[in-house]
Amino acid sequence: MEQMRDQPRERANRTSVPREAAVGLVRVVIVGAWGMLALLVVLFWISDWCESVREFAAVRVGSRPADAALPVAEARESLIGTLIVVVVQAVVIAGIVVAVPRLRASHVLHRLAVPSESLTRRRVYSAAMFAAAGLIGAQVFAEPGAPVRPGGIGTEAAARHLAEIRALLAGCLEEPFFSMLPVLGLALLPIRWTRGLRGRGALIVAVVVSACGRAALHLYQGGWPAAAALLWGAAAVYAYYRYRSIMGLIGAHTLWNLVAVTQYGGSHIAQVVAIGFAVLIAGFGVEVTWPRMRTAPADAQPPVGL
Score class of each variant (00 low, 15 high):
residue 9 R to F: 07
residue 235 A to Y: 04
residue 63 S to R: 09
residue 230 L to I: 00
residue 282 A to W: 08
residue 287 E to T: 14
residue 28 V to C: 06
residue 234 A to Q: 01
residue 159 A to S: 09
residue 109 L to K: 15
residue 14 R to Y: 09
residue 91 V to R: 07
residue 63 S to F: 02
residue 249 L to D: 05
residue 164 E to H: 02
residue 292 R to D: 14
residue 60 R to L: 08
residue 141 F to T: 02
residue 249 L to P: 03
residue 35 G to Y: 04
residue 210 S to N: 04
residue 42 V to G: 01
residue 255 L to D: 09
residue 289 T to E: 09
residue 100 V to E: 08
residue 57 A to T: 06
residue 134 G to H: 05
residue 99 A to K: 09
residue 64 R to Y: 05
residue 30 I to D: 05
residue 142 A to I: 11
residue 257 N to C: 09
residue 109 L to Y: 15
residue 192 R to A: 15
residue 300 A to S: 15
residue 125 Y to C: 03
residue 44 F to G: 02
residue 62 G to P: 08
residue 32 G to Y: 02
residue 138 A to T: 04
residue 293 M to V: 15
residue 228 A to N: 00
residue 294 R to I: 14
residue 263 Q to Y: 12
residue 10 E to Y: 02
residue 257 N to S: 09
residue 40 L to T: 03
residue 54 R to V: 00
residue 148 V to Q: 04
residue 56 F to Q: 03
residue 103 L to C: 13
residue 44 F to D: 03
residue 304 V to P: 09
residue 13 N to R: 11
residue 147 P to R: 12
residue 192 R to T: 15
residue 43 L to V: 02
residue 107 H to F: 14
residue 172 C to T: 05
residue 125 Y to F: 12
residue 292 R to P: 08
residue 234 A to C: 01
residue 165 I to F: 08
residue 241 Y to H: 11
residue 304 V to F: 13
residue 168 L to A: 01
residue 214 R to G: 02
residue 192 R to G: 15
residue 163 A to G: 08
residue 152 G to N: 06
residue 191 I to W: 10
residue 127 A to P: 08
residue 113 A to P: 11
residue 213 G to C: 00
residue 133 A to W: 02
residue 215 A to K: 02
residue 6 D to H: 02
residue 137 G to D: 05
residue 191 I to F: 12
residue 92 V to P: 05
residue 156 E to W: 07
residue 113 A to E: 12
residue 285 G to F: 07
residue 128 A to G: 07
residue 272 V to Q: 05
residue 293 M to Y: 13
residue 108 V to H: 15
residue 31 V to I: 10
residue 7 Q to T: 00
residue 274 A to Q: 11
residue 69 A to P: 02
residue 203 L to R: 06
residue 270 A to F: 07
residue 160 R to W: 05
residue 153 I to F: 05
residue 8 P to T: 03
residue 38 A to L: 03
residue 11 R to H: 08
residue 78 S to K: 14
residue 10 E to W: 06
residue 212 C to N: 00
residue 293 M to I: 15
residue 80 I to N: 14
residue 26 V to G: 07
residue 257 N to T: 06
residue 131 A to N: 01
residue 187 A to W: 13
residue 258 L to T: 12
residue 116 S to Q: 15
residue 249 L to C: 12
residue 124 V to E: 05
residue 162 L to F: 07
residue 108 V to P: 11
residue 150 P to Y: 04
residue 55 E to N: 03
residue 301 Q to K: 14
residue 212 C to V: 05
residue 210 S to Y: 01
residue 31 V to S: 06
residue 126 S to T: 11
residue 161 H to W: 11
residue 159 A to Y: 03
residue 62 G to W: 06
residue 301 Q to E: 15
residue 123 R to E: 10
residue 229 A to F: 01
residue 179 S to H: 08
residue 51 E to K: 00
residue 305 G to L: 14
residue 143 E to I: 08
residue 115 P to W: 11
residue 225 P to D: 01
residue 280 L to S: 12
